[in-house]
Design a protein around this nucleic acid. Sequence first.
DNA 1: GGGATGAGTTTCAATATGAAACCGATTGAT
DNA 2: ATCAATCGGTTTCATATTGAAACTCATCCC
Lengths: 151, 151
Amino acid sequence: MVKRKSHKGDYCPSARSLDVIGDWWSLLIVRDAFDGLTRFSEFQRSLGIARNILATRLRALTERGILETVPAAEGARQEYRLTERGRDLFPVMVALRQFGERHLFAPGEKHSQLVERATGQAVRLDIRTEDGRPIGPDEAVILKVPEAGQA
Amino acid sequence: MVKRKSHKGDYCPSARSLDVIGDWWSLLIVRDAFDGLTRFSEFQRSLGIARNILATRLRALTERGILETVPAAEGARQEYRLTERGRDLFPVMVALRQFGERHLFAPGEKHSQLVERATGQAVRLDIRTEDGRPIGPDEAVILKVPEAGQA
DNA sequence: GGGATGAGTTTCAATATGAAACCGATTGAT
DNA sequence: ATCAATCGGTTTCATATTGAAACTCATCCC
């Protein structure tokens, strides 16, 4: 197999992001972190992930600056918390959620919801130009880096 | 290994989304599709993915309604195109791109950009409540489905 | 002290990935 | 019309990665 491909050197920012969080488990761990989980066993129980894989993923996310370990809350051991950088994945989570809500549930089927804590209002995401006009995929183009082939 | 875990039955829409496009390659294929690629060999060259893997992924994305094959443009064979559903992944792509731009490039390092075709303006994404107020991760909570444990 | 958790690591089997070879159908050039 | 090159895969085989379960050490709880 030689080795799983990496997109680290790609000039496309999406590709690099996927390189950091684009595996089966990482974003689910991040999701749980957004949801307030911090302990190894909490993640393990919530996700049903194998322990060795969880350990690997937590280490990778930590190395990549998405999570950080803080020595301990009170008891002992340590906690995994989202860094500033990790919190910047919020839009990614919301975008995935929105897609799932729209397309991956049967009509009437229950799903969890993301709401503003204070008011209970639904959280939405949208895409606009710099000056605030909403824009869809067809009106957008990727400008490539001149030298590089990759988008 | 028993089988790779699936999140299909999860009550969290993000998890289900990841089940559909959460592997190493799928979103990159989708990215290229947004960028206008349609042919097997175009994807293969652009991504440097092994052919057998590409074939598997294209089939999976098609089965899941993200891509569709249209019989032929003019010459022969067929093309892979984003479906309506596939185009709804646009926010996910933009979110990943924005994260990558912000955190995964050295200062001054070049990267591709997503702009409005007509004006060249940068495309941005933001998250708001239903009534339009911008909101960050700390002010949002996930409301779980009562019966289910998973978020 | 003794047992139950917590947080991993190790071991081992099953699965998925990647490279390269192979194949039939087109397309293109002569 | 013929021969080579390209397209769109599939097959095979070696290697990587994943997952389950067992096994360690600590620390908690009583």
